[in-house]
Design a protein around this nucleic acid. Structure first.
Lengths: 231, 231
DNA sequence: TTACTTCGTTGTGAATTGCAACTATGTCAG
DNA sequence: CTGACATAGTTGCAATTCACAACGAAGTAA
C-alpha cells in the first residue's frame, strides 16, 4: 500500500534492493503480583514453539505505525486491549536463527510497567492464555520460546538499574500511593528489602514526590499519607 | 552506490504479507581528541541531506550478516577499514519521516569507543570526508543529517552513565595505561574534573585493574605504574 | 643543585548511609 | 472502655563514603 506512493520529496536514490528482515515488536510487561516481580507471558498456539510461553508481541506494520513507540502501543492494544502508559524501549535483537518463520528476524523490545492490582488484561481479543509468571521461576526454568528468556532478563536488569538510580516505578503504582507502597514496590523489583529511613531521606532529597493535602490511605491500622509524583 | 546488481533476496518468500521497513545500522564512534570527547562524522555526498554531516552507517544485509552485532562490525569494516573492539548497541529508532529514501526507516544504533591516539580511520575505502568533531560543537550546532544529532546525544549520555557506574572506558585506552591516563579519559567523557584520591579509592575497591609488574610509563617527569584490565 | 611537574599517598571535616530505637495513630478483641 | 497490635513516621548515632587539600616522592631539565 505504501510501497511507492510516498514521494513528496524530489526523486531520490532508490531504496537498496536488498531483502529486509522480518521485524517484530516484543513486549516485556512487568508487574508485581503477590509481592513478587512478574512478567506477562502468553502460551503460543501455533508453530514455531507451539505450547511454549513467550512474550506478547506483533509484527511491525509500516502502513499503520507512525514510529516504533506507536507500533508498541498498537501491539499492546491488540494483545491486551489497553494502551501502556509507562513504556520504554530496551533495544533490538536480530539474527538469522532467531525465528524459523523468517530467514532473518529482528525484534525491537519494549518494557512496560503495569500497576500492581491492574485488572488482569486477560479479556483481550484474539489471545490464547496470558498469565503472570514470577520472574524467579521464569529465569530459572528458561523454557521460553525463541530468545525471550534473555529478553526478560534484560528487562529486569534495566528496571532494577532504574530503581537503583531512584528513577521511580510510577508505572507500578496508582496515581496516589503511600510511601510504604512505593517502598514495597521497589523491594519487589530489587528482590531485597530496603531501609525505611534511608529510602525516605533519599526521596525527599530529590524532591520527586508531593503529599496530597487531605488524602490518607485508611486501612486496618494507622492511616498513611498519600503522595503523588511531582512535576 | 548500492544500486548495483545484487539480488539474491528475490527468492525469499515473505513470511507475512506486510511490507518491511528499510533497516540500517548507524555507528556513533567516540574518541578523545585533544582531551575532548569527539564523534566521527562523515559528510554526505548524495541526497538526501547532501553536504550535511552524518554518522557513518550502512544497510543491513541479511544475506551477509549473522546478527546485528556482526552487521555493525561489517559496516565498520566497510566504512573505516577496521573492526571495532568495543561496541555496544544503544537501541533502535524508526518511523515514517526519518529517511526520505524509504517510506519507513529503522536504524539500529551502535556506540563504539576508539583509542585516544588511534590512527585516524581516514584511509578507508569508498568514503567521503570523515572527521572527528568535538561533542560540544556537534550538540550545539545540530545541523546533522536525519535524526543523528539526537543519536549522538544518546550515545554520549549512555557513555557518561557507564563512567558514573565505574564501567571503565577501556575502549579509549591502550592495553596498558596509567591511572592518570584513565582518569583524564574519564574526565574528558564526563566533561568535568574528578578527584584523584576518590577516583583511585573507588577503583581498587572494585578490583578492576591490576598493575603490570615491571612496567612503568616513562616521560618527562616521574614515571607512572602501568595497569591493565583485570579478569 | 635546584626548579619543576607529575605520581602516589595521607589526613580531615562533611555528607551519606545503615541500623535500630522510639513515638504516633488507627483498628480490633475482650 | 481498655489494652494489644500492626503499621506510619521520626529521631539518634555509629560507620562508611566522599570531596578537598596537602604532603612527600621521583624523575627531567636548566
Amino acid at each position: 500500500m505504501s510501497a511507492s506512493t510516498h514521494g513528496p520529496g524530489a526523486a531520490l536514490a532508490p531504496v537498496a534492493p536488498y531483502p529486509m528482515p522480518f521485524v517484530r515488536l516484543e513486549l516485556a510487561i512487568l508487574s508485581i503480583v503477590d509481592g513478587h516481580l512478574a512478567v506477562l507471558l502468553g502460551r503460543r498456539a501455533q508453530a514455531p514453539h507451539a505450547g511454549q510461553w513467550a512474550l506478547p508481541g506483533g509484527v511491525l506494520r509500516i502502513d499503520l505505525d507512525e514510529d516504533l513507540g506507536a507500533a508498541a502501543q498498537r501491539v499492546a492494544g491488540e494483545r491486551l486491549g489497553a494502551p501502556l502508559p509507562f513504556i520504554r524501549q530496551l533495544g533490538a535483537v536480530g539474527g538469522r536463527a532467531r525465528d524459523p518463520r523468517a530467514p532473518w528476524a529482528l525484534s525491537v523490545v519494549f518494557r512496560a510497567l503495569l500497576p500492581v492490582n491492574s485488572i488482569d488484561p486477560l479479556p483481550g481479543k484474539r489471545l490464547e492464555e496470558l498469565e503472570w509468571r514470577a520472574i524467579d521461576e521464569v529465569t530459572a526454568d528458561s523454557t521460553l520460546a525463541f530468545d525471550h528468556a534473555s529478553l526478560v532478563s534484560q528487562a529486569v536488569a534495566a528496571t532494577r538499574n532504574e530503581i537503583g538510580a531512584l528513577d521511580l516505578p510510577f508505572g507500578f503504582l496508582p496515581e496516589q500511593f503511600t510511601l510504604g507502597e512505593l517502598q514495597s514496590c521497589c523491594e519487589a523489583i530489587l528482590g531485597h528489602r530496603l531501609d525505611k529511613s534511608s529510602f525516605r531521606r533519599r526521596l525527599d532529597d530529590r524532591d520527586l514526590l508531593e503529599p496530597v493535602p487531605g488524602a490518607m490511605r485508611t486501612g486496618a491500622f494507622r492511616p498513611a499519607q498519600l503522595y503523588r509524583a511531582k512535576g
